[in-house]
């Protein structure tokens, strides 16, 4: 890496993808800060990574559904990070969301509203400083809505569009880089009861490595397993009158 060792802030810090990402960055000698809701879970991950890498991590309380607290959250950080990564997400239960609007709203807010608003705040702070990297973990699900997951998918589609717009706005002379990560299937507790095709399924650590590698190469959009790019290309190109009849 060309730059000196920098600071990364990971939002949604107690998920497995966050854990793997934090470990990857800590091994790369970055200063890692974890933010999330449960102090105890964050502390457990921070201790683990600290023992494994010998680096000290800091943890910060954040409820991504409470946007009123965001400014205070950013102001209370020890410094404005060089890189912010949102790993915030909630798959939820589609059938339940269909009949329970509260649950549906929680899925939509957790996957779109929360991450988009807080990343937007970081974008403004980064713009004021003149540099920074914004990374959003979105999803291949957001590339096209499917009957079995459309609350989740639509919110991820929103996040993907948000990141794309932000990248477009800040592309020239801002010093800010915006990266969208689409992990595809990942072996986590979100998917532990699902049968997944091995070739399309990444381990959490692959996501962490993809983020760090993408950062160094200043990539814009990353499918963690590149095969997903082609899978989603086919899915996106399929005529709606065929697509709508598929059981997906």
């Amino acid at each position: 890496m060309a730059e000196a060792k920098k600071t990364v802030l990971i939002l949604g810090g107690s998920s497995e993808i966050a854990r793997a990402t934090a470990l990857t960055f800590a091994q790369g000698r970055w200063t890692v800060r974890l933010a999330g809701r449960s102090h105890r879970e964050l502390q457990r991950e921070a201790d683990d990574i600290s023992v494994r890498t010998g680096r000290t991590l800091t943890i910060h309380q954040l409820d991504v559904l409470d946007h009123g607290s965001f400014v205070a959250f950013v102001d209370a950080l020890p410094d404005l990070p060089d890189v912010v990564i949102s790993v915030v997400g909630l798959l939820g239960e589609q059938p339940r969301a269909e009949i329970d609007l509260h649950h549906a709203r929680k899925i939509m807010r957790t996957n779109y509203e929360g991450p988009a608003l807080i990343l937007s705040l970081f974008a403004e702070r980064f713009a004021g400083r003149g540099h920074g990297v914004i990374v959003g973990i979105s999803s291949v699900a957001g590339d096209r809505g499917r009957g079995s997951k459309y609350f989740y998918a639509s919110a991820k589609a929103g996040l993907t569009a948000f990141l794309s717009g932000l990248r477009n706005r800040l592309a020239i002379n801002s010093g800010i880089h915006v990266m969208t990560i689409k992990p595809g299937f990942v072996r986590t507790r979100m998917t532990e009861h699902t049968q997944l095709p091995p070739i399309l399924t990444a381990a959490p650590i692959e996501v962490g490595e993809a983020v760090l590698k993408g950062l160094n190469r200043r990539r814009d959009v990353i499918y963690v397993r590149s095969l997903w790019f082609f899978v989603m290309l086919v899915i996106r190109l399929m005529p709606e009158r065929i697509f709508k009849r598929l059981k997906l």
Partner: peptide, 13 residues
Amino acid sequence: NRMRAFDPTTGRV
């Protein structure tokens, strides 16, 4: 499967 603490002076983990 998390590690909790390590003391390099004693080797206790």
